[in-house]
Simulated scan of single mutants.
Amino acid sequence: MSSVPTVEGFLDYTPVAAGKQCQTWYKIYGNLRSGVRPLVVAHGGPGLSHDYMDTVADLAAAPYNLPVVFYDQIGGGRSTKLPEKYRDYGFWNEQLFLDELTALLSHLGIQGNYDLLGNSWGGMLSSVHAARQPQGLKRLVLSGTPSSAASWCKAYHRYREQMPEPHRSILKQPRDFDTEDTPEYNKAIGLFFSRHVVNVDPIPEGFQRSFEFLEKDPTVAHSTLGKSEFQFVGFCMTWSMENELHKISVPTLLINGVDEGADDESLEKFHKGIVNSKWVKFTGSTHTPHLEEREKFMKVVGEFLTA
């Protein structure tokens, strides 16, 4: 990747109800003025950073040579933190993140011609963006994206029941915001993550960085997902695209792995709901095939975006 030029910058804007000007950090691989349609990458969380997705920058090199745009969503990574909005469920809403994405596209001057790739929560955000039918969006990639929060939690509850004891009982214990993480819980959730989120040893540096950012400031995560991996709070608790999928009209690539939160039931709904969609299952991956089957992921996505 050393031969691919990179540019970093900040988008300055003031979200409604933030009470202050905020900055969204972004990084561009390649040249947005090259004439090649750029790919914007929306990371998961909410509350993570782009770092665990940084392998997607592979697409900026040959043979695809796509300009790739990463950004850290508000409240996470290198963007403005808002700890004063901790558990402010009214502030942390879907529209906040949609407005940020729209502002970024405009700031970069690519709002008239771009592709969008979202993983996990980033895919949820991207699917809503696509359903509003922005004229500049040409192709959509949804990786590890559930059709609803309820479907994600249903899958996670099923996987939890398959955990061996004592891990199953530990993970079923209620987890309030003042619950301290014990060594026993960390061991149980670590085993769960290796089965259903990322099965790569050692854990990639980018993945570790994203969670280091999260640990330093969990405001966004605790205000949208809560303390538990198995029951959301805030707007994510009732989030669903199941009645809106027919509004997505651009060619869409659907990706999931094995035994992950975006299970086959969710992907079936996406595939049936989006007329112009293609579904590829990565049988050697869980929730992060861009890490677990990196070369195959880039080939599948790169060929889809350049077809």
Rank of each mutant, 00 (worst) to 15 (best):
Lys216Asp: 11
Ala130Leu: 02
Pro15Ile: 05
Thr306Gln: 13
Leu82His: 01
Cys22Thr: 13
Val301Gln: 02
Lys281Gly: 06
Pro204His: 01
Leu254Trp: 02
Leu66Trp: 03
His43Cys: 07
Cys22Val: 06
Cys236Arg: 01
Arg160Val: 13
Tyr29Cys: 11
Val56Trp: 04
Thr306Pro: 15
His129Ala: 14
Asp72Ser: 06
Leu104Gly: 05
Ala103Tyr: 01
Arg158Asp: 15
Gln133Ile: 07
Asp51Ser: 10
Lys272Arg: 07
Tyr64Asn: 09
Gly30Tyr: 00
Gly19Val: 08
Ser143Thr: 05
Leu253Gly: 08
Phe230Ser: 06
Asp181Gly: 06
Thr55Glu: 08
Gly19Asn: 10
Arg37Gly: 12
His222Phe: 12
Val40Lys: 07
Leu101Arg: 00
Gly76Cys: 06
Ser126Phe: 00
Gly45Thr: 04
Pro202Phe: 01
Phe232Tyr: 15
Gly144Arg: 02
Glu8Met: 11
Phe211Asn: 13
Thr182Trp: 06
Val7Glu: 15
Pro164Gly: 14
Asn186Gly: 10
Thr14Leu: 11
Trp239Ser: 05
Gln95Arg: 09
Gly76Glu: 00
Phe97Thr: 00
Gly284Cys: 10
Arg87Ser: 13
Thr145Ser: 12
Phe282Ile: 04
Gln21Cys: 14
Phe91Arg: 04
Thr80Trp: 01
Gly234Met: 00
Ser79Arg: 00
Ala155Phe: 02
Ser148Leu: 09
Asn199Ile: 02
Cys153Pro: 04
Ser277Met: 03
Ile189Arg: 05
Phe91Asp: 11
Trp152Pro: 10
Val7Cys: 14
Gly112Trp: 01
Tyr185Phe: 09
Asp176Glu: 15
Ser266Leu: 02
Gly284Gln: 07
Leu142Asp: 05
Leu98Met: 09
Leu48Phe: 00
Leu104Glu: 11
Gly190Gln: 05
Leu140Ile: 02
Gln135Asp: 15
Glu8Phe: 07
Thr219Asn: 11
Leu305His: 03
Leu305Glu: 07
Phe230Met: 03
